[in-house]
Nucleic acid binder design. Structure first.
Lengths: 234, 234
DNA sequence: GCAAAAGTGTTTGGATTACACCCATGC
DNA sequence: GCATGGGTGTAATCCAAACACTTTTGC
């Protein structure tokens, strides 16, 4: 047994722990990330991922929900954990280890508010993000990879789309997320097994043949998955 | 701007941060995890994942390497990050947030040492792990899923096998990791594109036709991957 | 009718599966 | 020779890609 260990144990309680909350949305044919312009030191005036310190009696998913709510007023959204970053010099004011959490939201459904952290916020296309504060570029890059993996293996794409969507919108979302063109006929064949609800509704105000609107049948999906009759895969 | 924030900032530096180091090995047809019997409070005498607090000027991968070395004397091994766990009550002695790291080792090549944390260590088959200290069962479960994903998408299986191995050993490893039987002929067809070096050597001391020994051609793999000519997929 | 995008069918080649069979070694 | 596991070939099937085609709307 390392004798010094129990003696020095208390000295280790000198770190701070933060969460960075990556909020992804989809609009104008691109996946966007919600960024804030910092209104405090360090990195005052620079663009960054919204984040906050974890409170002493808060669990991590709870802290992520709080940060998301303070920024977007959105509740009850699914949050996913990303990587953890803890280089000793990553925060100039002390040892702050941070964990990335990310959520997928419908941009139109919210008015993200500047609130406490920033006077300015912006939705930036993920492939056009410039230099950010701290090590946030590395956090963004690693989280995009995890997002892509989630999009391939779980039906989180529907979190990004409105309740009712066309099949073409779904295809464009995947094209945007993976930066590659897809064949329409083949894409539709691939998604044929996904439990969709075909609504009676159609697109409005388009000057071509209106597309049918679909929605994702969460109940049927859960039922099929629990019976191992379906596995989401894109 | 939240005025209280900068004033209270220092108060947040009261957390501790640990790493849990999951060391996986393969023997007797099963994937095993290295566990220790704790020789200190809390959870004295209970089985746990080896872990340690992160030192003030240590980066996370660095801390993981150190812990791995102290336990196994192994250096320069690839370490992979897993999930981060931070429930406020997960550690009875204070707020300790922990991050899982895992490594894949060749069991025969090392004599894991009890060292500072425990007088007793054991390799336990991953599907036979009983109740562990702290929230370590949840950490194990989540890390096994990440390990499986790694085994499907990256050539980490070779970290678990000796330098030279038979194709059947490789197949048994995958059968053990995913708990499913595989067809021999089809397995071999699937791995035909993997850059193997066929050695001139054969199995010794078997009472049937000896199998040819192969090794993984890391150089060729790196070359192919960098040219996007090959993508590991199982 | 024409433009534009929705939506579908057909062919092809490659991968996956199931299964049968031959081969080399020890005893 | 026989038992044991190593190692391979074939046919059926499924899946993905490429591409052409028809349909429905607004103007």
């Amino acid at each position: 047994m390392k004798n010094t260990y129990s003696i020095e144990f208390e000295k280790f309680f000198s770190y701070s722990f933060s969460l960075d909350c990556l909020i992804f949305g989809y609009k104008d044919g691109e996946i966007h990330l919600l960024l804030i312009k910092r209104n405090m030191e360090p990195f005052l005036g620079e663009w960054a991922i919204p984040g906050d310190l974890v409170y002493p009696n808060e669990d991590l998913p709870q802290a992520a929900s709080r940060i998301l709510f303070e920024l977007t007023q959105l509740k009850d959204l699914e949050l996913h954990q990303g990587g953890t970053f803890g280089a000793p010099d990553r925060h100039p004011m002390g040892r702050v280890i941070t964990c990335a959490y990310f959520a997928l939201v419908q941009i139109n459904q919210l008015n993200a508010i500047a609130s406490s952290w920033a006077n300015e916020i912006a939705w930036i296309p993920i492939y056009k993000i410039k230099k950010l504060a701290f090590d946030h570029n590395a956090i963004v890059d690693s989280t995009i990879l995890i997002l892509q993996h989630k999009l391939k293996t779980q039906p989180v794409c529907f979190d990004l789309l409105p309740e009712k969507f066309t099949l073409n919108e779904l295809q464009c979302l995947y094209e945007a997320a993976f930066n590659e063109a897809l064949n329409k006929a083949n894409f539709r064949k691939k998604i044929k097994t996904i439990p969709f609800l075909k609504t009676n509704e159609k697109e409005q105000n388009v000057k071509h043949r209106p597309a049918i609107l679909y929605s994702f049948d969460t109940n049927k999906y859960e039922r099929l998955v629990s019976k191992e009759l379906f596995k989401f895969k894109m």
